[in-house]
Design a protein around this nucleic acid. Sequence first.
DNA 1: GTCTGTGAAAGTGTTCACAGCG
DNA 2: CGCTGTGAACACTTTCACAGAC
Lengths: 227, 227
Amino acid sequence: MSSSKPPSPRTEPAAVPAAVVNRLSLYLRELQHLVQHGIQTISSSQLGERLGFSDAQVRKDLAHFGNFGHPGVGYRCDELISEIRRILGTDRRWSVALVGVGNLGRALLGYRGFAPQGFALAAAFDSDPAKIGGRIEGVEILPMDRLSEVVAERHIDLGLIAVPAADAQTAADRLVAAGVRGIVNFAPLALVLPDGVSQVGVDLARELEQVAFAVASRLRSGQTNGQ
Amino acid sequence: MSSSKPPSPRTEPAAVPAAVVNRLSLYLRELQHLVQHGIQTISSSQLGERLGFSDAQVRKDLAHFGNFGHPGVGYRCDELISEIRRILGTDRRWSVALVGVGNLGRALLGYRGFAPQGFALAAAFDSDPAKIGGRIEGVEILPMDRLSEVVAERHIDLGLIAVPAADAQTAADRLVAAGVRGIVNFAPLALVLPDGVSQVGVDLARELEQVAFAVASRLRSGQTNGQ
DNA sequence: GTCTGTGAAAGTGTTCACAGCG
DNA sequence: CGCTGTGAACACTTTCACAGAC
């Protein structure tokens, strides 16, 4: 995330920790999965156990936003799904623009997991003239200089950046200038964005580094230490 | 991450928080970027500022692992890069297996960001007979029933799972049985893995949900104010 | 009895602020 | 001086434990 953080003068009424929002997404996936299997209610301890959290954690997370549970029963899955979607803002449709139609961009255009969560890839842009005019998964590849116009026209609020690292900041600047208010950035660098525009960075090599560290740590402690 | 967590009997010598390891990756990227631009040393405050962290945060994170700084000077970039790579375990080459050669799998095979960080995609598997035998980015697509054999043969330690959600757990089980000790899972569900095998989950829709929440929150507080 | 929601306690992580080194 | 490394203070998160609802 980004936005202003350092100058935090007074305690705002309800600043929800990013970690809570992250877990909300996990709860949502699990609930959607449960519903598909015909399960109608679930307790905080059952939900937590499936995801590796404590029951109290689940209840506290949800308590940030209201009282959704039913004492003696648990949570009704469909009800809680609606509530979490409302909290996350995915009870409506979000139009998303993709910038960069390389390997990763194409995969994002074809990804089936966006639509069920309320995200529609409504436009794709690339700077390569050879790609422009082509269609991938029904989405036409447009030139960068039409970005501003199309983002406004199609009421696009979020952007996906899948360009090489060197071009990512420029892509972000264009999206922001066009009115986009949130960006998921797949380039391995931190974007500099104005206040009021959120970013989430996804660095594929970083994800591998995290597991590599865990594995390397285990190897080290396994060799040098008892447990 | 996964591994055992609930039954944590005694305080281990140095349990490094996952958040620290995450930031280590960010520091590493930034340092690599700085070196490319000819910068040789950097202070904790400069490094932190570029990534949105405090100077103390940077120093504390690094202090978990040793004394890498030079008072009055800062950190020497190339030195710190080596140290962080050693800590993360990426001072050596990791062989990685990909399971699932769909849109996303192909993008991962073609991703240029893995090699510079020490990760080599050494094998790719798919269950679709039509794909088997094909080559993508120089990597041959192999059938699932050769997974165990090839993982052993090529000394593969990490796996990337890019199959549909319904097949992800099976893919994980096969990788684990073959000896893989860490998995990055792109399917939107939590894998059940034995102790000693780490996982990092990357759910693309979840990343969008995180920015959607931030944007929606800003809209709400901007429109209604009070809350 | 089961399960939620929630204050209070425990535990973690972050920032402060300064001694000490180059 | 500038900057690191670090104990101490602070803030935040998680867990505990129990009153109240079904």
